[in-house]
Computed example of a mutant assay.
Amino acid sequence: MTRSRATAIGFTAVLMWALLALFTIGSAPVPPFLLNALCFAIGGIIGLIWTARRGFGVLRSVSWRVYAFGSLALFGYHALYFSAFRLSPTAETGLIAYLWPLFIVLLSGLLPGERLGFWHILGALIAFAGAALIVLGREQGGEGSALGLGLAFLCALTWAGYSVASRRLGAVPTESVTVFCLVTAALSLAVHLMVEPTLWPQGVFGWASVLALGLGPVGLAFFTWDVGMKRGDIQLLGVASYAAPLLSTLALVAAGIAKPSVAILAAAVLITTGAALAAWASAKRVKSSDDQSLL
């Protein structure tokens, strides 16, 4: 698989995450951890179908340490995310939680064979400014708390760390994400039974929203993201991830849940500019490497 194709596959995860807010709203009143359990169970079923192509023997070749790492990362990210918003349901919490693409770009410079350039960092900062316009422009009630903001920061670090570490686990088959999903579903169900009331989706639309979440944003997306992180352009994917809050808002506008605004247009310009800078920097690096190989 080529680097560009893996990058394109990884970006499909960003497109799917853009529908996360829309389907989450449609899944009300399901509490967070029950929703997590349902969605990751569906994602695990998708993984079993994915794995069946190569045979389930491929899962036996993966170390239990990798399974523990991936499962705790997926569960930990969502646990921190939900807890952060319960303690601090503010736009600032969302903005801090969305630092993970910037952290991916910065941490990628520590990976062997990767080189972090000035234009990657500038592109990430410009795209982050665009995401900030979207997140801070959302109407959210409630008061913030230092603990909630701190959990949001840990949430961003958790996802960035998992994504970058996936690159170091390049030899581990993507089928391992199947186990990550199933274990996360089991852990989420256990937490739900301990701390949440059981409220099921309402009507056909509610169940359809849960199914859509499990098939896409909280299912297949983790498999395609794994491909992108292991074999694609990690800096470009990090910057391009800022398209998620923009596309999410556009999806809400299309559904009539949110209203169009000048801020959305400005955010689109900033995110597109940031992604273009990162893409240009990556293309320039590839060309430079090709030129040196010819010498």
Rank of each mutant, 00 (worst) to 15 (best):
S4E: 14
T12P: 10
M16Q: 11
A21L: 13
T24E: 15
G26F: 00
A28W: 05
P31T: 09
F33V: 06
N36T: 15
A37I: 09
A37N: 05
I45R: 03
G47N: 09
I49L: 15
V58C: 11
W64Y: 12
Y67C: 07
G70A: 12
L72N: 04
L72K: 02
L74C: 04
A79W: 05
S83Y: 02
A84M: 01
I96A: 00
A97D: 14
P101I: 00
L106K: 09
G109N: 10
G113K: 11
G113M: 10
L116V: 11
L116R: 15
G117Q: 14
I121W: 08
G123Y: 11
F128P: 05
E143Q: 15
A146K: 04
C155W: 06
A156Q: 00
V164E: 08
L169R: 11
A171G: 13
V172E: 13
P173I: 03
V177H: 07
T184H: 06
T184L: 01
A185H: 01
L199D: 13
V204L: 15
G206M: 11
A208E: 12
S209H: 08
S209K: 02
A212W: 01
G214H: 09
L220R: 05
F223G: 08
F223P: 06
T224C: 11
W225R: 07
W225M: 14
D226E: 15
K230S: 06
S241Q: 11
Y242M: 10
A243Q: 07
A243N: 13
A244V: 13
L247P: 01
A255G: 07
I257C: 04
S261Y: 05
A267L: 04
A275L: 11
A276D: 04
L277T: 02
W280H: 12
L294P: 01
